[in-house]
Design a protein around this nucleic acid. Structure first.
Lengths: 155, 155
DNA sequence: ACATAATGAGTGTATATACACTTATTATTG
DNA sequence: CAATAATAAGTGTATATACACTCATTATGT
């Protein structure tokens, strides 16, 4: 069916022939995450780890469920994602007044690691936002939030 | 810092306070993938598997590298993603004329599984596209492609 | 033709992701 | 107050993801 088609056109064809919301968001996210991972590498943080620390730094302390909700991440995924951060001593787990809960806080080392990572994040971020333009990125953000809300309601 | 803030506002605050392209695309993708996974469940396929089969069905046969490139996925990730599909007999691996290559094709079972999954995919897809509107989704698609291209050039 | 480059793909390891199930603790209800 | 329901979090298992490294095969340069 596509034997006559040159390879480069085939790439373009398939990419554009798949209109799936899931396919396209996952595909873009793979690329974006690879890019942020590479740029953040000198800080020793992966993209997900940077996001987690960044969200946590905005809160006094967070229960696992709160943080998982904010990150739109399964609670058990957060447990696993936490483990390299605990090992490196960037996050601390306490025991709450309700002894079932395990409130999370950033350690001083976590705070300083985040600060050291900031310039690398800014480099990656500005590269993308400058190229597509601030208004375009604003539209994208709104679209992503809109899709997220539709899907969150549906749970 | 946020102790006075009610929990619900905190969620909204943190979500909107993190302007990171990576954070927002990953977050939305987690939600979207969960949604497609749930909707596709009766077909026995996960989102990624559906995408892979779908792309493969548009090609006569694909080398691993071609397919990995189309999916913007590391070649070794494709190797791993293939394994449940091979186990279920949905994809077949041949040996090419160049004996280093391993061309992939959909099996008849793979084709029929994809066809059976189509209505479930349509349900998930139309739900989202109807809610945000076709023009809005078109804008999103263009934005995702634009970001993908910026990032791909930077490799 | 042979030594070396380049290329296509797989493995080892680590993180990311989520579901089903379990454990520990707190809340509720009779 | 004791039995039971609800809640917060962890484990087992499977897939998803990518980097460093390796292996096998083809291409290339002399």
């Amino acid at each position: 069916m596509f034997k006559e088609m040159p390879k480069e056109s085939l790439y373009e064809f398939v990419r554009q022939a798949v209109p799936c919301v899931g396919f396209n968001t996952r595909r873009a996210t793979r690329l974006v995450t690879q890019y942020y991972d590479k740029t953040l590498a000198p800080s020793g943080l992966r993209s997900t780890q940077y996001s987690l620390l960044s969200a946590l730094s905005m809160m006094d302390e967070a229960s696992m469920q709160e943080l998982a909700h904010i990150l739109a991440m399964d609670r058990t995924t957060l447990t696993r994602n936490l483990s390299p951060l605990l090992r490196k001593g960037l996050v601390k787990v306490k025991v709450g007044s309700d002894r079932r809960s395990r409130p999370l806080t950033l350690t001083p080392k976590g705070q300083s690691t985040l600060e050291k990572a900031l310039p690398y994040w800014e480099k990656a971020q500005s590269r993308i936002v400058n190229e597509i333009g601030a208004e375009q990125w604003d539209l994208m953000m709104r679209g992503l939030h809109q899709i997220s809300m539709i899907v969150e309601e549906n749970t």
